[in-house]
Amino acid sequence: MFAYIVKRLISGFLVVTLVSMAVFALFWYGPSSPAKPICDREQGVRCIPERLVAYEKSLGYDNPIYTEYGKFVKGIFVGREIAFRTDVYQCDAPCLGLSYNTKQPVTHELVSRLPATISVAVGGAFLYLLLGVPIGVAAARRRGSVADKALVSSFLFLSSIPYYLFALLTWLYLTVLWEAPVVSDVGYFSPFSDGPLKWFGGLFLAWVALGIFGCTQYTRYTRGAMVEALSEDYIRTAKAKGLPARTVVYRHGLRAALVPVVTIFGIDFGSLLAGTIFTERIFEIQGIGYWSLQAVGNKDLPVVAATTLFSAVMLIFSNLIVDVVYSFLDPRVRLS
């Protein structure tokens, strides 16, 4: 088991390295000079070729790509100095570059936005399971009934709405039309330490939108996995032992059905952690997703690169966790 985790960590590290190279190369070989956005940003003056060359020189874009990639990697581990023409900034490890916009280290901002994203992700993911799994189990037990068919088709309808539209409608209904209490009419992020109610109020809308939309999928997964599990021979054995129906369904059926659901959940949770762009944008929550969207708009290349890399790390990491958890859930994997 330990060897397996180490092996997965090594391969995960390799993938992260490849992703970082790809992101680096993407901007390096882009259609315009990677220094152009920051040159354009200078107030009041047009970016004339001479100034652009100066920026390129100070940012090292005149060096070969591998030298600069080397500096970038070194920055992550030991930090480095970054010059915007004449101004030199210190960027401590782990350095992911400086924002063109604020000239602040990207890492600082990433860390400051992390609590918001984690809060959205945890709440949303919690609702995925809290709603999706019980509804899925109930539907599987009544497979083929009118209630099951109605549920399956209505959830199919829900999940075929584009998510951003769904989120906007949720916002519209809950705040503008219904004026739900506690919930503010725009979302915001207030740290948990500043009072749980405030934290809850600001994120509630985002959670509801994410949770309801996501739970339709989890209902489908759970229902499918449960239907399959309930048709297994060991369920018949459990019934033949004289176990009560509840025990048969939950201890024998759900225990087996949860394995694939947990697998999908782990990956979904990873992508939630990587940032929920629509949710954060629509509900005005200053998380990583919103930030990356702004960075694209601002042509803030270091931020775009950092958020992309961060997403990749989150996904790879969640995949690793899923595989480890999976082997704990299924003794056939663990003991072979």
């Binding site: 297994e232 021979d233 060991y234 018949r236 054995t237 024998h252 225990r255 087996a256 299924d330 003794p331």
Partner: peptide
């Protein structure tokens, strides 16, 4: 009752 194919009839977990 005991069943054919005990591998499938016993719960794997």
């Amino acid at each position: 009752m005991i069943f054919q194919d005990a591998l499938a009839a016993l719960h794997p977990f």
